[in-house]
Design a protein around this nucleic acid. Structure first.
Length: 492
RNA sequence: GGCGCUAUCGUCUAGGGGUUAGGACGUGAGAUUCUCAAUCUUAAAACACGGGUUCGAUUCCCGUUAGCGCUACCA
């Protein structure tokens, strides 16, 4: 029986990334699983942008998400940029819909307005934690009379809308990979649905949109399991049919914690700029979780997106969280590189590290610094090589210990992560840190220079960092630290 | 702390009541090569622990432990 033969009911799935920064490798992973599911059942794959958090919103993020997912070949059938019958596909353009639905819940008694201040909530929480109780909203505003609510509203206090979770009973739902999961209602908080700024929280927007967009299968990361009872309750409050839930394992760092940028490159931008091929990345992602039959093509671990769409078995996905092993990804990438024709290989080079758009700005940087064209590589090697690890004699400032230097470098990474990749912000981020920690501008910048270029002599640092890119720069700093930490301190 | 999820080599995984527990990455050794890769051969390396059920459990059940996640007017 072919995997495609049981594809009776048309399905609709979605991924719903938040534009809060660089596109995340976890988004690509969940995107892949969703994409394959839709492809196998002749369904639709929807891309929805969940931009309801104004405080974390990053304007450039959405375009990067589009580019990265397309780079990987995960094309969507409906989305903000391609349209579709259930739009708009950007949640910030749907606020009126959420408000109406919140009103509906308010009217049916499944939600209530809450005017508790942040301070009160914080105090409640602290008390509960001190008393070793689970921190939960105590339900203070459930008892508000219509008059009290009116008074708050009249005074210009919009408050928030909370869902009214039943005090008794429990909610059980089926996870397609794990079976029945039950939560007692006293462990489910009265979640805020509508924030005081008028935007919905994830929980409301997600459920409303999934229903309105006719999503049949919610395939998302494991971290959502604990909030699924809230979502199930919302579907019930509205009287809507439940989708199927598939909770995928979380990608992990080497130490098994949820994958994070502190410990791994998680930006898809990084993988592209560092020279990974999309087919290698997508293949690797498909390996995690084990949805491909072990006997596929004589047990090979190499397969294409189309082959996955043909043979992947969602119900075979393992539920243990896989460690994201860059070593294996690199091996796979090498396999794909070697399999390219020379023409394709050269074209790949010309499209990335040897592209005009990369090389020309580098030329601008060194024109005044060389006397012979043949010296081009002398000053620019660090922009073309991957391994620039400097020896201690290069990176360690006079009068600084190795420990304090490495600790400071760690701070530099954090400061740079928070910076826009513009010359002014890089400079001010580093300078601010230097002032805080009593590092002179010279020591400070020289350390970054040493780590990034492997030398104390280089083209202008900040400009070089811009050319090299944020993702790769930070990755290089992080790899330097990791290697240094593993290296035993040299005996004096 | 509470709730939930998870548990096969270092890592990704296959398997399943009786197996020499298989493959891949990585690691070691060897071959090949002017070098380095690639390639080939080869080696070491795992069923978390304790109870059941059973003639027999790594596999099924329960517990423990550990890891992870959630516990926000973030997603």
């Amino acid at each position: 029986m072919s995997p495609l033969s049981d594809s009776a009911a048309p399905v609709r799935v979605r991924i719903a990334p938040s534009p809060t920064g660089d596109p995340h490798v976890g988004t690509a992973y969940i995107g892949l699983i969703n994409y394959l599911y839709a492809r196998q059942r002749n369904g639709q794959f929807v891309l929805r942008i969940e931009d309801t958090d104004r405080t974390r919103f990053v304007p450039t993020s959405e375009a990067m998400i589009f580019d990265s997912l397309r780079w990987l070949g995960l094309n969507w059938d409906e989305g903000p940029d391609v349209g579709g019958p259930y739009g708009p596909y950007r949640q910030s353009e749907r606020t009126e819909i959420y408000r109406e639905h919140a009103k509906q819940l308010l009217a049916s008694g499944h939600a209530y307005r809450c005017f508790c201040t942040a301070e009160k909530l914080e105090a409640d929480r602290r008390q509960q934690i001190a008393a070793k109780l689970p921190p939960r909203y105590p339900g203070t505003c459930r008892a508000l009379t219509a008059e009290q609510v009116q008074a708050h509203l009249a005074a210009g206090d919009p408050g928030v809308v909370r869902m009214c979770v039943p005090l008794e009973g429990s909610t059980t739902f089926t996870d397609e990979l794990r079976g029945a999961i039950t939560f007692d209602h006293h462990n489910v908080d009265d979640q805020v649905l509508l924030k005081s700024d008028g935007y919905p929280t994830y929980h409301l927007a997600n459920v409303v949109d999934d229903h309105l967009m006719r999503i049949t299968d919610v395939i998302r990361a494991e971290e959502w399991i604990s909030s699924t009872p809230k979502h199930v309750l919302l579907y019930q409050f509205f009287g809507w049919e439940l989708p199927r839930f598939w909770h995928m394992p979380l990608l992990r760092n080497q130490d098994k914690s949820k994958i994070s940028k502190r410990k791994n490159p998680v930006s898809l931008i990084y993988y592209r700029e560092a020279g990974y091929l999309p087919q290698a990345v997508i293949n690797f992602l498909g390996l995690l979780g084990g949805g491909m039959p072990a006997d596929f093509n004589h047990g090979t671990e190499k397969f294409t997106l189309d082959e996955m769409a043909q043979h992947f078995r969602h119900e075979n996905i393992r539920t243990g969280g896989p460690v994201f092993d860059l070593t294996k990804l690199k091996w796979l990438n090498g396999e794909y590189l070697r399999a390219l024709s020379l023409d394709d290989f050269y074209a790949a080079l010309r499209g990335t590290i040897l592209s005009d758009s990369y090389l020309r700005p580098i030329a601008a940087l060194i024109q005044t610094r060389i006397e012979l064209l043949s010296q081009f590589g002398d000053l620019t090697g660090f922009l073309l090589n991957d391994n620039t690890h400097p020896p201690e004699s290069v990176y360690l400032p006079k009068n600084r210990t190795r420990e304090e230097t490495l600790a400071f470098a760690a701070e530099q990474i954090i400061a740079l992560e928070a910076a826009d990749w513009q010359p002014a912000s890089i400079e001010s981020a580093l300078k601010r840190l230097g002032e805080d920690k009593q590092w002179s501008v010279k020591e400070n910048f020289m350390l970054v220079r040493a780590i990034l270029t492997g030398s104390t002599m280089s083209p202008p640092l900040v400009e070089s960092m811009i050319l090299f890119g944020k993702a790769r720069s930070i990755d290089r700093l992080r790899r330097f630290l990791e290697t240094e930490k593993k290296r035993p301190a040299p005996k004096a």
